[in-house]
Nucleic acid binder design. Structure first.
Length: 417
DNA sequence: TCTGGGGTCCTAGGACCC
DNA sequence: TCTGGGGTCCTAGGACCC
């Protein structure tokens, strides 16, 4: 078997540069990349966090994920632009279209990240670096934004390489370069090491990725269980997962949640929000030709305490009515009457429709329900997602559908590559 | 400080069965 | 009746990624 060749492509400050290019195109005078700016939600709607930041904003030590409130304290003149997810999806699609000219072996890892597998394509592409520069330059020239490309023999190392020095750069991180290029990095930079694990590792005297790589793996296993071994392997560059052409197949769970503009305080309000969340899940399930048999509801109170309750059903279903019925029932059992700011519904135990025994479906999916869902899906696909809704939403400020249904081509990331 | 929304995986404890 | 120990299923919760 020949050595694998993997590229990781990462759009530099994706949300921010996509928005910047769009605004310039619309005649906006200022390039928000050159001033302190962030892409962030709307504080009135309680979506007040930083999703992406410009380089000048970075100089104010503004960080992704922090509140707009605190970002504004750090920089008085901060420009805040709300996210346009449709735009992001379009930009992402354009990039993948271009990448498809080079290889069909593409894994969309998130909206702004892809893995490409060029293994055994030496005849087509002689020099990986030349290839990377060509791709990078074409994206910049033809699409108007810059990317970093990391090259290695597995996904983990390629991903770390693309993160090295930004923007608009190509880096390699082959196994023989690990000691020089990766081991000196702070251990918190390693994929899989978050805040909590970082703190623990520091108490063991582990500061750099090199420290972790050379630590006794048995002690790590004892202290952190399987996760200890996992990150030890990562620190040594050991990772061999495949570039999966489509995440769309094999998705394991699906969820939809929202932070409401105002606290939910009545069961009626809760039921309406839950219903609207379930509409979207139902559509996505049917689009994905999946059904499920485990449902869970979770919520966050006004004081950020969370609760969650799940239930395994005795049947598989993809019916919106069933999802609503079970979710609302679960909510009734879970809710302790606290004011709620965020609420969500998740389904797991996903199965391909064809693989589920008919007898297990029968209880959930009667012909009548199926036809109803199908009709509604068709109307929405044809006339837009708000073209039809149940009567309970009339004369209320609640949206009848909540959450996107276009993102399922590349479900967002997990903590595993 | 006043904190989004989409995912994945792991672990612990209880119920139940033999 | 009070006693094991192993396996599996289910639920709740936590950590991580972007």
């Amino acid at each position: 078997m020949s050595k694998r060749l993997i590229f990781h492509i990462d759009v530099n400050s994706a949300y921010l540069s996509w928005t910047a290019a769009y605004l310039l195109d619309k005649g906006y005078q200022v390039d928000i990349r050159n001033i302190p700016s962030v892409i962030g939600g709307n504080e009135e709607a309680r979506h007040g966090i930083v999703l992406a930041k410009s380089d000048p904003a970075k100089n104010y030590k503004i960080q992704t994920g922090e509140t707009l409130f605190s970002a504004r304290i750090k920089c008085k003149n901060l420009v805040i632009v709300p996210p346009h997810y449709d735009l992001f999806k379009r930009c992402s699609d354009f990039m993948v279209e271009l990448l498809n000219e080079y290889t069909p072996n593409i894994q969309r890892f998130s909206c702004d990240e892809c893995f490409l597998d060029f293994t055994s394509m030496e005849n087509l592409y002689k020099n990986p670096l030349d290839l990377a520069y060509e791709i990078k330059d074409r994206i910049e020239k033809e699409l108007g934004f810059t990317v970093n490309i990391g090259i290695s023999s597995n996904k983990l190392l390629a991903k770390i390489a693309s993160d090295f020095n930004k923007p608009n750069k190509v880096h390699t991180l082959f196994p023989e370069e690990i000691e020089l290029k990766m081991w000196p990095l702070d251990v918190g930079e390693l994929f899989g090491v978050g805040k909590k694990t970082l703190k623990k590792l520091n108490t063991y005297g582990i500061k750099t990725i090199g420290d972790l790589a050379n630590f006794d793996v048995d002690i790590l296993k004892y202290k952190l269980n399987s996760y200890g071994e996992q990150i030890w392997k990562y620190a040594n560059g050991i990772e061999n997962s495949q570039v999966r052409k489509s995440n769309y197949i094999g998705i394991k769970s699906m969820g939809n949640s929202t932070t409401t503009h105002f606290d939910i305080t009545t069961k009626r309000e809760a039921s309406m929000v839950i219903s609207s969340l379930c509409e979207t899940i139902g559509m996505r399930l049917r689009k994905n030709k999946s059904c499920f048999n485990v449902i869970s509801i979770h919520y966050k109170t006004d004081s950020f305490f969370s609760r969650r309750k799940q239930k395994k059903l005795s049947y598989f279903t993809d019916s919106t009515q069933d999802i609503k019925k079970e979710a609302i029932k679960l909510f009734g059992e879970l809710w302790e009457e606290e004011p709620i700011r965020q609420i969500g519904v998740h389904v797991t135990g996903l199965f391909n429709n064809n693989e589920v025994q008919l007898s297990l479906l029968e209880e959930g999916n009667t012909e009548k329900k199926k036809n109803l869902d199908k009709t509604i899906d068709n109307i929405r696909n044809k006339y837009g997602k708000y073209s039809i809704s149940t009567a309970q939403f009339i004369d209320t400020p609640m949206p009848p559908l909540c959450g996107g249904i276009n993102e399922d081509d590349y479900p967002m990331m997990s903590s595993l590559i």
